[in-house]
């Protein structure tokens, strides 16, 4: 887990990301505190109320986030979080993957899986279409057979499956 020993190159600073993360966890802590207060965070007649534990959990998150924030602010600039090029690589997976999961509620799981594998293999892996198509058809087909046919677990389906009457 060595970060930022990649020599030259530009990118976001580790310190900035640390600060951002601390702020993010603090926000999360505040949401938890708010949610706990709504349901009651006191100590009722017969023990703690529903929000008692989450309230203190949220409080501790906020306090520790504050410590992390101060530590990050005081820290000397410790180098890069990652180079832009590296982050670009990450995004090249993250963006297709995000589109993939965003499509599942509308198109079911099979078609997006097919598209994901084809895009990934041809665009990032520079494989030819025959192999890409074979994998992209084979994997969803395998899951269809094992899960839906064998184990009787229905997976999400979209309009195309409905048309085929599956």
């Amino acid at each position: 887990m060595e970060q930022a020993h990649h020599g030259a190159g530009a990118g976001p600073r580790q310190r900035a990301v640390e600060i951002g993360t601390a702020l993010l966890t603090m926000l999360f802590g505040l949401i938890v505190i708010y949610g706990s207060v709504i349901v009651g965070s006191g100590w009722g007649s017969d023990g703690p109320q529903a929000g008692f534990f989450p309230f203190y959990v949220g409080l501790i998150i906020c306090i520790c986030s504050l410590i992390n924030l101060v530590m990050a602010l005081r820290e000397a600039d410790s180098g890069l979080f990652a180079e832009w090029g590296q982050l670009g690589q990450v995004l090249r997976v993250l963006i297709p993957a995000t589109i993939y999961v965003a499509l599942i509620p509308f198109l079911g799981i099979y078609l997006p899986s097919f598209l994901l594998i084809v895009v990934f293999m041809t665009w990032l892996g520079k494989y030819g279409f025959p192999l890409s198509l074979a994998v992209a058809v084979g994997v969803p087909a395998f899951f269809y057979l094992t899960l839906e046919r064998w184990f009787l677990i229905p997976l999400p389906k979209g309009p195309i499956e409905a048309m085929l009457g599956l």
Partner: peptide, 27 residues
């Protein structure tokens, strides 16, 4: 990796779905 990675993603998505049969879980 460029073959196995999308397949892992698909497996993860299916896995996440089958825990509670819920598409929201995949997100």
């Amino acid at each position: 990796f460029s073959i196995i990675a999308p397949v892992i993603l698909v497996i993860c998505a299916i896995g996440a779905y089958t825990v509670n049969n819920n598409v929201f879980d995949v997100l």
